[in-house]
Design a protein around this nucleic acid. Structure first.
Length: 232
DNA sequence: CGTTCGATGCACT
DNA sequence: GTGCATCGAACGT
């Protein structure tokens, strides 16, 4: 038996990310996104991802070529691309493929594992820009805490400070960090659908969901093509 | 159930 | 000035 090593599993290696983005999007399901900072440790099982691939993908942030904001997309695979949108949400991607080719996997939902109370605390109170949140004070069920890319970033305390974070390295004993581990959780059943919340590129089925996960974003498969394989 | 719409800041044209 | 890889409250059915 391969017992738990002290300190837990190793982060996924760089080579995991240096592959076609659709494969990485599929294989990230069942892996564990781990966040450590001064407030503590929080983690969750990845159950929903989306692929954004190259300048020819109209929904990719690199569709108009390199800019200061999208620079991490052109950088090293295995690093985070975090950006701010809609004036209030941070979204987390894992950069894929190879240096110079802009591609990434957006992490859209987690099933919380560790730090549920910490996530719950972060989901109430004030928004990223200090805005008052209108949500009710009732405790959210665990599977709602990291449902949606903006929500999971908030629950994990991820901001622009985590942009370009190396996902292949654990945090130091006391330091902050963001990484992805393999804890051996199998995800056998996945469904590919069109990506959510974009205006173009909706013909591509590049969203990958662990079938039946209660944490995946609400989505009606009847209104769009859902299949066992990615593609246009 | 369903759809609409405001919040809110910043990158880019 | 425009539009966003969002969220959830508010309203209609």
């Amino acid at each position: 038996m391969s017992g738990r090593r002290p300190g837990g599993p190793r982060p996924l290696p760089r080579t995991f990310y240096e592959r076609p983005t659709l494969e990485v999007a599929r294989d990230l399901l069942g892996k564990v996104l781990v966040r450590r900072d001064a407030e503590g440790l929080a983690s969750g099982l990845i159950v929903e991802t989306e692929a954004y691939i190259g300048e020819s993908d109209p929904a990719c942030h690199a569709a108009s070529g390199p800019t200061p904001r999208n620079q991490p997309l052109y950088g090293a695979p295995g690093r985070a691309y975090v950006y701010f949108t809609y004036g209030m949400h941070y979204l987390v991607n894992a950069v894929t493929e190879r240096r110079g080719f802009p591609a990434a996997v957006l992490i859209r939902a987690l099933e919380p594992i560790e730090g549920v109370d910490l996530m719950r605390r972060r989901r109430v109170g004030r928004g990223p820009g200090g805005a008052r949140r209108r949500g009710s004070a009732r405790a959210l069920p665990a599977h709602h805490l990291c449902r949606g890319p903006g929500n999971l970033a908030r629950a994990l305390g991820i901001t622009l400070a985590e942009n370009r974070a190396d996902l292949t390295k654990r945090a130091g004993r006391n330091g902050a960090g963001l990484w992805i581990e393999d804890r051996g959780v199998p995800v056998d059943d996945v469904v590919w659908t069109p990506r959510i919340g974009i205006r173009s590129g909706t013909d591509l089925a590049w969203r990958c969901v662990a079938a039946g996960s209660p944490a995946a974003s609400t989505f009606s498969p009847s209104s769009a093509a859902a299949s066992r394989r990615p593609g246009p």
